[in-house]
Design a binder for these strands. Structure first.
Ligand SMILES: [Zn+2]
Ligand SMILES: [Zn+2]
Ligand SMILES: [Zn+2]
Ligand SMILES: [Zn+2]
Lengths: 164, 164
DNA sequence: GCGTGTTTGAGATGTTATAACATATGCCCT
DNA sequence: AGGGCATATGTTATAACATCTCAAACACGC
């Protein structure tokens, strides 16, 4: 009963997007920050799928909406969205994914599939607690606790070439 | 009784380096791969400290030894060293650190200090086991299990500004 | 309307990483 | 010795990722 499997191939992604955007709007209002048109559109582009998306890929997809867009345009929007916890940066991919969680900063486990590029976000108490304990023992003050694991997701593993 | 605290300010770093290089030489011989002059020198540069070092920083430091050096020179050496498990790439810094462990691929926890830039490598069974279990439950086949945590190390925390 | 802080536009620049192709070097086989 | 092969390196160019700077436009409380 962790995160629901929202990356399942068959899930209602329209609903995902709708909910993510609604949450974003609500949170920004509540926090008194501006979810401007640019930021909203970039967030929408990020939510087009559960795949991690690169900044320059966003830029290409954003240009039709606003031809004056420059790298800065995208990076500024990303900075804002990340600061609000609406987007996570995936360090090992130099890429970004949407986050459903409403709290600005939270620990997480990202499962990054090398085949389908989808990223599943989980918050497994067991792992995170063990980590917290280990850090305490090491006298290390953590600023973030994102764990990124790369591999093959269960769906892609299922579709693997039978034998070889 | 984890990894010894080799990043302590006072430790005998000459010994660190000597041992790391000796291990590297031994492993490469054993594996029948060539620790060429370039690769050896790059590894030595990486071991100059326990701080994570950037590729272009290595390049600058390498040029006096070999003025023809280009980015490719460094990246190729790094690729080799990483493949042999002698160096780890720190994804969240786009940087590299030396590894003392002899097995080519192993799980690890990297504690990355934002103040002193030193990186401490640990292999805490508790955390890694919990992670393995979580991954199994998620049906995810991991290829690597490097956990990178950024924050403040115990030494830097000790030296922090008293109060503010 | 006015001042203040925030957001955006525009261009240049900085940083990190790989592609593509040529050359050299060592080693095995004949 | 000479040919073929694998590995390593040299060389040039470019792709990919990210930030800086300065000025203009905008939002919003007064
Ligand atoms: Zn979805
Ligand atoms: Zn997959
Ligand atoms: Zn040392
Ligand atoms: Zn430190």
């Amino acid at each position: 009963m962790n995160t629901p499997d929202t990356t399942a191939p068959s899930h209602d992604h329209q609903q995902c997007v709708k909910q993510a955007l609604a949450t974003a709007e609500h949170l920004c209002t509540q926090r008194g920050v501006q979810l401007t048109a640019i930021r909203h559109q970039v967030l929408e582009l990020i939510w087009e799928s559960h795949k991690a998306v690169k900044a320059y890929e966003l830029l290409e997809r954003f240009k039709p909406l606003k031809s004056a867009a420059k790298p800065t345009t995208i990076y500024r929007a990303l900075d804002f969205l990340i600061a609000q916890g609406l987007v996570h940066r995936v360090e090992s991919l130099n890429a970004f994914i949407g986050c459903r969680c409403s709290n600005r900063h939270h620990d997480q486990l990202l499962l990054i599939c090398k085949l389908c590029q989808e990223v599943e976000e989980r918050t497994p108490a067991g792992v995170l607690d063990a980590l917290t304990q280990e850090l305490e023992q090491a006298g290390f003050t953590a600023h973030n606790k994102a764990i990124e694991i790369r591999g093959i997701c269960h769906r892609c593993a299922g579709q693997a070439v039978p034998e070889k």
